[in-house]
Design a binder for these strands. Structure first.
Lengths: 372, 372
DNA sequence: ACCGTCGCGGAAATCGATTGCCGTGAATCA
DNA sequence: TGATTCACGGCAATCGATTTCCGCGACGGT
């Protein structure tokens, strides 16, 4: 059955050769397909001669098992699907890198997709991965509410864990960071430097991070009046940071500090400040969020909030594996602590001079780390 | 056969519900599985009443076809595997983004993997994707020679196209850019500014881009002596750029221009220069390669070589689709032209002042574009 | 009235691998 | 010696969807 070659015609070598199936191996080794399967999987003991014959045939034919057939029968693809909003924000590649590495050690392959911050594309990807029978899903939903229907649909069929961002209106497993705490710490830091007129440039409130950080900013201002001119929201991009900073810094009453929704925005702000001839941190202090690798290289280097990426991905992966083995468990939410990294964009004493490879030193405030 | 529920026990709703198969739909609709398949695929005409019954059952059961079964039978997964060396170099995310978008329009899903610049991991990923029966592979091999065995093994079974980087020793379809031409243009540009003592800071020669660009730099120097102190090779990272620049610029005879192997290196160089109190471009000019989005925001903005990413991905995807439909065709190599983007890091007259959103203007030299 | 044709539906084979079940022969034990 | 266990191998069912082949009834043409 299902013999593959030997139909009389010469091989006619054209690039791609037909794949040998387990039956071809069985025939070449003079055993049954069951035996081949058992040799390869080690599921049951096999006579050494048979095993040797099988291995020889595998080698000879260059046999590689078809994971489609295996997955169909086993009801497990040993693959995890992952969906992140963007890959041009360095934070997510970093998350992806760690996740892939960790899951590989657990014997899973990672299938990565991008939603491009579009709930429609995200839903397509979610459906695609579901139909391809991944064993689990990791997702940073691109929108708090508009992502919900597709996330719900997927979670009904497949173990799903959210990381870094979450949807609202239903609770699924979620590993995030203390976004609000990070912002609060930053504000405290700014005020300790004598900065009281603090502006906020953030992403839109559609996604979790944007909403959390903005809300935290407003809350941290408690006493002060929330001047609408001081709070600008649009997108998590350098371009927006630049544009917003231009608006803020050319106004008659510019703020003396700018807290940004993430590092990309902050880099845009630094760019605009430099262009306008303003000195950072003397004229205005600036902070970011995420601690991407560019942050330490910026001019000046960027004060920011570091998310514990490795911990984040490990916890999310563990949560997913737990839900795979035990689908009925209660949804659980983990919030990891963040850490403020103080650099030159807020602290002149840490401006970018001195040896390039100096280490940092804690300055006594819990959760605040002074670098370089 | 394969009835799914109705075994007497109550539903016992725990998170995940069992997936309905095409047979469940058939039973609910009172037709055969063949008919369900035909309704869903539109392969053959079906009586309207049957079709309606099927659609109702699909809706009712929330049926989603299992792509594993479909792919097994159809011998096509409608998925393309892609492997890039890193995702923390913004150039590749950009390539990925465009590729995914284009392939989606052609009805393919993209499964993305990262090799982390490690030929061993790359080989694993290649095998994994091959065993999962992707219809084609797109790869930027992380190493010119060490990637060859795994690439060969994969290409023997599945249509494969290389993009941006290639292996050596065997020719497979490849879409790249004129790396050498870009470097030559940069050198010409530097010399036209009166800079003759040009240093090169690049990635290692293990991968295609590193080797091409380094070789081109040496070749462009023809007359001049290739001072080994002036050519530093290690990795395509900001960190390396910073370290190398520190070495170059603190030497007794610093160069008056630094050509970098990519933008990340160049950003590191700018960072080191600023820290050492050197002015760019007055004291030293700096150029990058790739035109990542940070390049325009750097202080000063970065002169660089733009790769035609969209064209690159479109051509690579088209080549792959062509090879899928016609596996026997001759391997083909495409080399796309690059374009130098002149910005503030080489040209003081284009320093970063003026309106933020100004467009650029061509300065008459072919292939050279003066931005902002 | 008879014979093709057409529309439509279903049974069954198929894709590739896994696994429950049974059979066979050898070894062990009473 | 006869019974029981054990090691090992193969048959066939199975996962879920597609597709070939065939059958049935209706319809049109002569």
């Amino acid at each position: 059955m299902t013999a593959v070659s030997g139909d009389g015609t010469p091989p006619e070598d054209l690039g791609i050769t037909v794949q040998a199936s387990i039956y071809d191996v069985a025939k070449a080794a003079g055993v049954s397909a069951s035996t081949v399967s058992r040799v390869l999987s080690g599921a049951r003991s096999v006579r050494p001669e048979s095993a040797a014959a099988v291995m020889a045939a595998v080698e000879e034919l260059g046999y590689r098992p078809n994971q489609l057939g295996r997955a169909l029968r086993r009801r497990s693809t040993q693959a995890i699907g992952m969906i992140v909003p963007r890959v041009d924000n360095p934070f997510f590649p970093s998350v992806v890198q760690h996740t892939e590495e960790y899951l590989r050690l657990q014997g899973y392959a990672l299938l990565l997709c991008t939603s491009n911050d579009d709930p429609g594309i995200e839903a397509q990807r979610l459906d695609m991965l579901t139909e391809r029978q991944v064993d689990g899903l990791l997702i940073s939903p691109c929108h708090q509410t508009r992502s919900l229907p597709a996330v719900r649909r997927a979670a009904e069929r497949i173990p799903l864990v959210q990381l870094d961002r979450s949807v609202e209106g239903e609770t699924y497993d979620f590993v995030g960071v203390d976004d609000a705490g990070g912002i609060r710490q930053l504000i405290t830091h700014m005020r300790s430097l004598g900065r009281w007129d603090i502006a906020y440039v953030g992403g839109d409130r559609g996604n979790w991070s944007g909403a959390q950080r903005h809300t935290a900013f407003l809350a941290a201002l408690d006493g002060s009046e929330p001047d609408p001119e001081r709070v600008l929201l649009a997108s998590f991009s350098e371009r927006w940071g630049r544009e917003a900073a231009e608006r803020l810094l050319t106004s008659p009453t510019p703020p003396d500090a700018i807290v940004c929704g993430n590092d990309l925005i902050a880099l845009g702000v630094l760019s605009a400040a430099a262009r306008l001839g303003l000195r950072v941190p003397q004229d205005v202090t600036v902070s970011g969020y995420d601690d991407i690798s560019m942050a330490v290289l910026a001019q000046p280097s960027l004060t920011t909030v570091r998310q514990p990426v490795e911990e984040l991905t490990r916890q999310a992966a563990d949560l997913l594996l737990a839900r795979i083995t035990e689908p009925g468990r209660e949804p659980c939410t983990l919030t990891l602590p963040t850490q403020v990294i103080v650099r030159g964009s807020t602290c002149p004493t840490h401006a970018d001079e001195g040896p390039l490879h100096a280490g940092g030193a804690a300055d006594g405030v819990p959760g605040v780390h002074v670098a370089r």
